[in-house]
């Protein structure tokens, strides 16, 4: 018997007009599990990830986090309150970092905890230091984002998300915008989170990283999950022809 899923996506569907971007997707993630989502451009990976915290609302289907439905139907005002609460429990890391350029690293990390959790300045300082230590950037606490490298920016963005003590972390191509030599420092931070048993859903183009870190890999194409399984199986013995083609092309392009 498997445990009750931590993140549960049931019959998720989404359309833009007549374009069906997600078609009846089901995904259960257990606590502490790390799931990679791979697939060609336009297959709906980002849309699915962004549906989990309702940044891109589904057309139909349900998203559950533990025993709470994320996208439950409520009157607008109540929904706003509900979703702001739920989002505090779901960390998200974007391809382009989305750090706040007008705030220092300290400000970026402490803004939300201060506003939403009412912590004191002293607690906020400690929190910023703890989270920065976690991503190895304690010495950059008073820098502005414009004074950081891409890899450092992304590590700060991860620290900012972690500062809310989320139950699950979502990564949307966290290293795609980085120069190749900066990718590893971000990957290392994510690996560390994996060792700490953070529940993570990771959209990535880096097959090597997915293979190293993830418990499960989903291959998406044209809005459906074509194939899923442990990384060894997906990467070594993919069953589906579309998966095989994608991986072959991908490996070629990486050479």
């Amino acid at each position: 018997m498997t445990a009750k899923p931590f993140v549960d996506i049931r019959h998720a569907a989404k359309s833009y007009g007549t374009l069906e971007v997600l078609k009846d997707i089901n995904l259960q993630v257990q606590k502490g599990q790390i799931v990679a989502i791979i697939g060609p451009s336009g297959s709906g990976k980002s849309t699915l990830l962004r549906a989990i915290n309702d940044l891109d609302p589904l057309t139909s289907g349900e998203i559950w986090l533990e025993d709470k439905q994320v996208n439950k139907s409520l009157p607008p005002r109540q929904y706003e309150k509900h979703i702001n609460q739920v989002r505090q429990e779901i960390g998200m890391v974007f391809q382009h970092f989305n750090l706040f350029p007008h705030l220092t690293v300290h400000g970026n990390i402490t803004l939300a905890p201060k506003m939403l959790k009412g912590i004191s300045d002293k607690e906020a300082d400690d929190l910023a230091k703890d989270q920065l230590a976690r991503v190895g950037l304690l010495d950059r606490i008073d820098y502005y984002p414009s004074q950081l490298s891409g890899g450092q920016k992304q590590r700060v963005a991860i620290a900012r998300a972690l500062a809310m003590a989320p139950k699950v972390m979502l990564f949307d191509e966290a290293t795609s915008a980085l120069d190749p030599e900066l990718v590893e420092e971000v990957n290392l931070v994510m690996k560390k989170l994996a060792e700490e048993h953070m529940t993570m859903i990771i959209v990535t183009h880096e097959m090597g990283f997915a293979q190293d870190v993830c418990d499960r890999v989903l291959f998406m194409d044209q809005g459906i999950v074509v194939e899923e399984g442990p990384p060894e199986k997906i990467f070594r013995n993919p069953e589906n022809e579309r998966t095989q083609n994608f991986l072959r092309k991908h490996l070629q392009s990486q050479k």
Binding site: N98, F100, H102, A112, M164
Partner: peptide, 27 residues
Amino acid sequence: VDKGQFEGARTLGLSNWQSIRKIIVPQ
């Protein structure tokens, strides 16, 4: 102001108005 700024703020749990006040307008 980049759309990602608003998304970054909302993702942390800030409300619409909090995001406008603390993130969008200052920038």
